[in-house]
Simulated scan of single mutants.
Amino acid sequence: MLDAAELPSVAPQVLPYTAGVHDLMNSHLTLLWQRVGDPVAYVEGNSFGELIDDPDKVLSFRWSYDLVRDAALTPEESTAFIERLLEECRS
Rank of each mutant, 00 (worst) to 15 (best):
M1C: 02
D3Q: 06
A4I: 01
V10C: 03
A11G: 05
P12E: 03
P12G: 09
V14E: 00
V14N: 00
Y17P: 03
A19E: 04
A19Y: 08
V21M: 13
V21H: 14
H22Y: 02
H22V: 04
L24Y: 01
M25F: 07
M25R: 14
S27Y: 00
L29V: 03
L29C: 02
L31V: 07
L32M: 12
W33A: 03
Q34W: 10
R35Q: 07
R35T: 08
V36Y: 04
G37M: 01
D38Y: 03
D38I: 07
V40C: 05
V40S: 06
Y42N: 06
V43A: 09
E44R: 12
E44Q: 11
G45Q: 05
G45W: 09
G45E: 08
S47P: 03
E50G: 03
E50V: 13
I52S: 11
D53S: 09
D53C: 03
D54A: 13
V58P: 03
L59Q: 14
L59N: 12
S60D: 15
S60L: 15
S60G: 12
S60C: 08
F61S: 04
R62C: 07
W63P: 00
W63H: 10
W63Q: 13
S64H: 14
L67K: 08
L67A: 14
V68Y: 06
D70G: 03
A71H: 00
A72S: 08
L73Y: 05
L73F: 05
P75F: 04
P75V: 06
E76T: 10
E77C: 05
S78T: 02
S78I: 00
A80P: 08
F81M: 11
F81D: 11
E83R: 15
R84E: 15
R84N: 14
L85V: 01
L86G: 10
E87H: 09
E87S: 05
E87T: 11
R90D: 11
